[in-house]
Amino acid sequence: MSSAVESASSIENRGMSGCRWSHGCMIRVVELTKDFQQSGRVIRAVDNVSFAVQPGETFGLLGPNGAGKTTTMRMILGLLRPDSGHAEIDGFRSDRVPDEVKRRVGFVSASAGIYQWLTGREVLAFFGEVYGLPPTQVAQRTEHLAELLDLNSFLDQRCATLSTGQKQRVNLARAMVHDPPVMIMDEPTLGLDIVGSQMIFDSLQVFKNQGKSVILCTHQLEQAQRVCDRFGLLFRSRLELSGTLADLQQATGQTDLVEMFVRLIRVPHSVFPAEDTWR
């Protein structure tokens, strides 16, 4: 079993399996590594993580809290500088031309707040301007997104008065205002009820239809299993497993993601070769 895991993850790490049959991959993550200093001690937050995502593909980046998912996403977007390795969006390296990367990415995160004193419409208008859309296009996109995400009933209310679900929908619209080819979604359903999170997962289907590449980071594994094309399991800063659901099933002998996840956290030795697990 462990040799199967090794082969699966090493293929991923070496060869960008998502793109091995095509050069047109939208997201390429190459050996990303990031250290943080904490009280004079160096803590490796992300360790040699590599993967790739094609257009129209949804990649589920899964892992327990503190595994390094958020740090990985921030490095892909160019918010953090990696210590080594790099990430590319549409051929642009986020450590070299972060603004080119940011233009192509819609970023949704659980920690992302919304401007309390602006209305949803003003938030969309502002970010439309920020992403360089001409005013007519901003209006067009606002109308389109309002309809798509059902914002019309509260679009002219100040965001402070909105419910958590409404706020997250405004936030999603904000990330989509410039119609980016890539969506990076960090726990987009955190704190949402069933209806709210269903709306987010529905939007993932829209992105797929539109040919967008998506990185999704979530703890809702069942939903993730349904919408994601491929997965990466991040544990203790390393991408321990990646591939399609079938790849993972083959490597772990578990049928669904929840089981893989629980085993991953509880008894890492049973899933992974010992020398790789403990650093």
Binding site: L133, Q140, H144, E147, D179
Partner: peptide, 14 residues
């Protein structure tokens, strides 16, 4: 939510 709707503008980079 209408899941098969196409965007009115293409993914242009501004």
């Amino acid at each position: 939510m209408n899941t098969d709707e196409q965007p009115p503008v293409g993914p242009t980079i501004n």
